[in-house]
Write a protein that binds this DNA or RNA. Structure first.
Lengths: 282, 282
DNA sequence: GAGTGGTCTAGACCACTCC
DNA sequence: GAGTGGTCTAGACCACTCC
């Protein structure tokens, strides 16, 4: 891993949790008990945060620090409840939200697992281009260019870097059933993706996010995409084997890891002759 | 309303709820009680459905039937728990899911409200075209054509009608700050949208989904969209005041009401000169 | 102060997986 | 049979709204 995160001791009771909700731990009996024994704090905290949100933040830190790695089983709800000295219900509510955000996956009877990009389930969460006919599948990659350069101003701004900071630049073509369909350029922070080379990319089979997760300790957890229509210029037309002037979808995507930190800028051109961008509005 | 839904009597105890989960109502005391008094059913139901899902279905029926109308307050959790003879926690879990699906909106201290398209919050759930600069706002509509016709085969298929069934056809241009940006065609089932005329559309201010909800008892609750890039033909170019051949986004959207019933087909062409289609991948 | 949704606990039992 | 997440209950108290 390229970065270090101050690790919390998860094994000691977290004495800094603030229970500004319901009955204090251990101070309650099943029959109605006077709660006046517990002195209430001076005033309701202005930065009120429910216990389960605090637990969620602690679990997220363990995910981010790599204490529990992608694909691994995390401790059971009962065990986490014991560690954090809260009820199972509170842990459950924290994990519910993490599952809704796709950070973990629950499997009844087995346990809760850290999400990973190394599974079919995850592949189409970020790739929205679907074939008009036939079964969706993952495209083949051909890398056109991989190099390190200094971030241009617009790239630096979107990645929250300083203009001129080192970035890794990647250009590739993606093919479905041998038909070139996507041309895209990527920019990644040089510091985080030190050692990312064309060789590493060519060796690796499967989505790049799997490689980023396994080899660079960086998990993409959400992305913001802006889409426009453009015409193919000559260079792109050649790569996609279409006529210059053919209309293409243009996507600009910024992907974020933990803490809403942007760690990838991707600009793609999609041929929509035999594919379409699928979106469900819920 | 153009259709009739068999209404459930919500005021009588629903005797057909199946509690195939935990302790039977009223058969449990706080101290460990023998549960053998409750005879277990012959075998675990093959179509196992948790109680809260059954409650959710009952609430959804009340929403669909118009017993609780868009914008209105629904009964409190405590009251619903009493009606359905379940705990507040079970009602809460049912409503949690309905809120996640945007069918209802919870407001702490006030109650739970039926969602409506008559509020700023809802407007941008289906309109994803955002200005490159400035604050998002709702476009002005100019109706080009409104007529009734027989559904072509492709339209009938997507709306789950028979080819030749009556549909309402609408063509309009939408303008942001006076600049024509969207041309779209809509097809609606004739039976449901009886009486929808150019006059009604012109009188109405605000998003069409608000009109559909208030005047035709049909609420759009989700949609599936497919997006492609195309070139403007001469007719569209004139309406959008762009050069013929200009690249445009083409969206085909099918919208669904309760029960996953398709009730609108919309085909739109978007100019992305000063706007972009915004999508967040979570 | 009364009513609403929101949080938290403790405890029981179920569905499912793995041995 | 033991362990996991999933459901359900009852009850307490909190944050927020409205009067």
């Amino acid at each position: 891993m390229a970065f270090v995160v101050k690790s919390l001791s998860m094994n000691s009771a977290p004495s800094n949790l603030t229970n500004n909700g319901a009955p204090a731990s251990g101070a309650v009996s099943p029959t109605a008990a006077p709660s006046s024994a517990v002195p209430s704090p001076a005033a309701p905290s202005p930065t009120f945060s429910p216990l389960y949100q605090q637990i969620k933040a602690l679990i997220t830190q363990s995910l981010q620090s790599g204490e529990w790695k992608p694909g691994e089983l995390i401790p059971s709800e009962v065990e986490l409840a014991g560690r954090f000295k809260v009820s199972q219900g509170t842990v459950r509510k924290a994990i519910d939200e993490l599952a809704a955000e796709n950070l973990v996956v629950r499997k009844q009877g087995k346990g809760t697992f850290v999400s990973t990009h190394h599974e079919a389930r995850a592949h189409f969460r970020f790739l929205r281009l679907m074939p008009d006919e036939g079964v969706p599948h993952y495209p083949e990659s051909r890398f056109v260019e991989v190099k390190r350069l200094r971030a241009p101003a617009d790239v630096a701004r979107l990645l929250e870097l300083k203009s001129g900071d080192a970035v890794v630049y990647i250009k590739r073509v993606q093919l479905f059933d041998g038909v070139p369909t996507i041309v895209e350029e990527l920019w990644l922070p040089g510091l985080v993706f030190k050692g990312l080379t064309a060789e590493r990319l060519n060796e690796y089979k499967g989505p790049m996010y799997g490689l980023f997760e396994s080899e660079f300790g960086t998990r993409m957890i959400r992305a913001a995409e802006k889409i426009r229509a453009v015409c193919a210029d000559e260079g792109v037309a050649e790569l996609l084997r279409v006529d210059p002037g053919t209309p293409l979808l243009m996507s600009e995507r910024v992907s974020f890891t933990y803490g809403d930190k942007p760690v990838e800028l991707r600009r793609g051109l999609y041929s929509t002759e035999r594919h379409h961008y699928q979106n469900d509005l819920n």
